[in-house]
Simulated scan of single mutants.
Amino acid sequence: MFRKTIGLTAALLVLSGAPAVAAETVRLPEPDGPHKVGVTTLHLVDHQRTDPWPDALGKPREVMVTVHYPARTVRGYPVAPQMTPRAAEVFAQLDAVHGHPELPDSGVDWAATKTHSHVGAPASPTRRPVLLYSTGGGDPRAINTGLAEHLASRGFVVVSMDHPGETSEVEFPDGRLRTIALPEDPRVKPAIFRDMIAVRLLDAKFVLDQLEVLAAGGNPDAAGRALPRDLHKALDLRRVGAYGHSAGGTTASQAMYEDRRIDAAVNLEGYLDYAVEPGKPGELLPVARDGVDRPLFLVGTDGYLDDRYRTSWAAMLSHGPRTRHHEIADATHWVFTDFAPMSAQLVDARLMTEQDRVHLVGEIPAARSVPLVRDLVGSFFHRTLRR
């Protein structure tokens, strides 16, 4: 989740000096499904809700999402970068240096990474299951691009949310950029963690509301920017899943409990309680206290075990067979993100030590972890959203 990012501001980061000369470009693994992938972004503004965080206090709540979808054709449509140049510059300072100190503090051109998705490509006009993704605390939605692309290539529409104010960087279409603005560290201040999850749950509900506008043929983008052709025909909102990493896993699990529109969820190593003190079990979230009548898949690692994780997940599993569990061996917390393949390349380039790679993602090699995570998440949703 969060490490040393609280209290830093975008101004300090961007004005701290010229970035180091880029030397290495990291690559994302190719999706292996039968569909080519299109991508677009939506800027969504909730005028019924005000933002709770200090940098935007009292303003309408804004959410940025990226939509990956099976494309009818990609010919003539450019490949999307993983991050825009400005977002990559801030990521290199805030997330790569302070959020994930295992990563190199120079020598990587984060803006040069290309995805396998094509901007604005027309959607295949066939109704597809929709998956809502929520990021880990502090991480941008871009850092789970590889899994989102893979799922889209396998026939899902994947809608990835950032949660502005507690994400390392969120860039809006008008050029504004928000960084982390939480007043205190949610790992050690239970009230902040509780507030953070509450905001995320409202973000998820709002995004689902806006997807209903989109599926009905409307344009929910705040500026009315052009949408890819036939995108509205690709959404089957009768089949909705949610997945998330870390705090995003917490969000996906509780969102399914609260919102009947969500049919199944995957929790990639997110706590299911409100901490009283760091690492110690606290009050269970309602989903873990009461259970849920739809499929929930808890996926964890053997390298990320503490009392909160054990206790809250055991409570969830006690409710019966609707909840399944899988533990990945020789792995740890960020193995579920693009840091898994990226860190292996950085070790090969001698920009990162093997010890730091293991600390970030575990001993498991990317050649095994990437297809394993893809299969666990994809197979679960193929089973549970098939109808």
Score class of each variant (00 low, 15 high):
R387W: 07
Q254W: 11
D185I: 05
A20D: 10
T384S: 14
A331Y: 00
K205I: 06
E327G: 02
D55L: 09
A92L: 07
T251C: 00
W53Q: 11
V159K: 11
H163C: 11
M196L: 14
A226H: 14
D46V: 11
W110T: 00
M64Y: 02
R127L: 08
T40P: 10
K59D: 12
R261L: 04
L42Q: 07
I143T: 08
I328S: 01
T73C: 10
D338V: 02
G17I: 09
L132S: 03
L131A: 10
P81E: 11
P101R: 01
R229P: 06
E149T: 12
V97K: 00
T41K: 15
V361K: 02
D162L: 05
V90E: 06
V240R: 02
V37G: 01
H68W: 15
T115A: 15
A204T: 15
G7W: 05
A255Y: 09
W110I: 03
G155P: 00
I262N: 05
E166R: 07
A329T: 14
S134W: 08
R383Y: 04
G107C: 05
D307C: 07
R239S: 08
V37H: 10
F380V: 04
H150L: 06
K59R: 15
A340H: 00
G244Y: 03
A87G: 14
L208I: 12
V74S: 04
M352I: 11
M196G: 06
T25P: 04
I262R: 01
W334I: 01
V199A: 15
G249E: 00
P85G: 10
Y271P: 05
E89I: 03
R261C: 02
E30Y: 08
D338N: 04
L208A: 08
V266M: 03
T5K: 09
A222T: 09
G136W: 05
L94P: 02
Y304E: 13
E166M: 13
T332S: 03
R154F: 03
L132W: 08
P85Q: 07
A23K: 13
